[in-house]
Simulated scan of single mutants.
Amino acid sequence: MRTPGTAELLDIWDVGQPLPPARRALLLLSAAYPERDDIASWPLGYINRQLIVLRQRLFGHALVCLADCPACEEVVEIEMPMDALLNANEMADATHRIRSEGCDVRFHLPTAHDLLLATEGTTPGCLLARTIDSACRDGVDVAPAELGEATLAAVEQAIERADPLAHIAFAMTCPACGHEWSTDLHIIDVLWAEIGACARRVLSEVGRLAQAFGWRESDILAMSSTRRNHYLEWLET
C-alpha cells in the first residue's frame, strides 16, 4: 500500500464529493493500490480492513468516536480498538457452500461490485441475493428468489462469520444512565470526514499563502507541512 500525498488527497476529495460511500472507498483504495485493477471484487470486509490501514497511515492509530445515548442523550465517547480490528481477518476465501432446508447453496462474499449493482445497477435489488451463485435441491436448480427465509438467513450468518469486518459494530455503555446498545462503525464515512477536514484546512492555508505571496497552488502543496506552517507563522508576526 502506498500513502497518497496531500495534493493527491485533495484531488480525490474533490472528485469524490458527489459520490456514494462505496465509490469513495474505491477511489481511495485505487490511489493506495494503483497496480491493482480488481479492488471492486474484494470482499467488503477486506475493503474495510484496507481502509483502516490507510486511515492509520494518514491520521494515526487512535480513533475516538462520539455517540448519543438513545436513552438519555448523553454524549458517550469511545476509543475504537483499530489494531484489534486489523487482526480480525485478512482476505477471506471468496466462495462458500452451505446446506439448508434440503438445498445446497453456493455463494460468495459480498464485494464492492455487488454493492454497487445492488444500489446503482439497472436492476437494483437485494445485496444478499447477488451473492448466491447457485442453489440446487434434489438435482433441480433453485433461483435465489425461491429460497426460503431460513436458507437466506443461514447464508447471511455464514457471510458474517467468514467476513466479520463487512459490518463493524461496537457495544456501548452510557456512563450516565447505564444504558447499553450497539453502534455501527462505517470506516469510509469516518475516513472521508477526516480527509474533508484536512482538505478544508489545507485549502485555507493555500489561500492565505497564495494571497500573501502570489504563489501557485501546486507550488504551495509541493512544500512540506512544516515549511508551510513556518510561512503561516511568519504572516502572523
Rank of each mutant, 00 (worst) to 15 (best):
T3G: 04
E90T: 13
E77S: 09
L116N: 00
A162D: 14
S218E: 15
T237K: 11
D93S: 14
D219T: 15
T119K: 04
P20A: 00
G5T: 12
A135S: 07
R200W: 14
I187E: 00
R24I: 03
I78F: 15
M172Q: 02
I78P: 10
E217Q: 13
L58N: 10
G148A: 04
D93T: 14
L86V: 07
I47H: 07
G60E: 01
S100Y: 00
L152E: 07
M1Y: 06
E35A: 15
A150G: 04
P20G: 00
W192V: 01
G196K: 01
D14T: 14
I12G: 04
F213E: 13
E146I: 09
L116F: 01
L28K: 04
E79G: 15
Q157K: 09
A162R: 07
V206L: 03
A176I: 09
L232I: 01
A222K: 10
V64A: 00
I12Y: 03
D184H: 11
N87L: 15
A143R: 06
L115H: 02
I39E: 04
P21V: 01
L127R: 08
T183H: 06
L66V: 11
L63Q: 00
T183D: 07
I168E: 04
L86C: 05
M91I: 14
A154D: 07
C65Y: 05
S41T: 10
T119H: 03
A210C: 03
R24C: 01
R23T: 00
A210K: 04
L191G: 05
D38G: 04
E156P: 05
L26G: 03
F213N: 09
A94W: 11
L66T: 11
L66R: 10
Q211D: 15
I98L: 05
L128N: 03
W192D: 00
V142K: 03
L152N: 07
P81M: 11
P70H: 10
A92I: 06
R24E: 02
R201P: 09
A143T: 06
E156G: 08
D83E: 07
L26V: 01
D138A: 14
S218M: 12
A92E: 02
Q157W: 10
E79M: 11
S30H: 05
R57N: 12
T122W: 09
Q157E: 15
A84V: 12
A158F: 00
P43R: 00
L54V: 03
Q17P: 13
F59G: 01
R99T: 08
D163H: 11
G45C: 02
S182C: 12
H179D: 07
R36A: 15
D11M: 13
W192P: 03
L44R: 05
P18T: 00
G16Q: 06
R200I: 10
V75D: 13
W181K: 07
T173H: 11
G102S: 03
D14I: 12
A166G: 15
V15E: 12
V53C: 03
R201C: 09
D219E: 15
A67M: 08
A176C: 11
L185P: 03
P81D: 11
D219A: 15
L63H: 04
A162T: 12
G214E: 07
D184C: 11
A71F: 08
D104G: 07
Q56M: 10
H167G: 09
R208P: 12
P4F: 02
G178F: 01
R55W: 12
F170I: 06
F59P: 00
G45H: 02
T95E: 15
Q157T: 14
G214Q: 08
E205G: 02
L152D: 06
E236S: 14
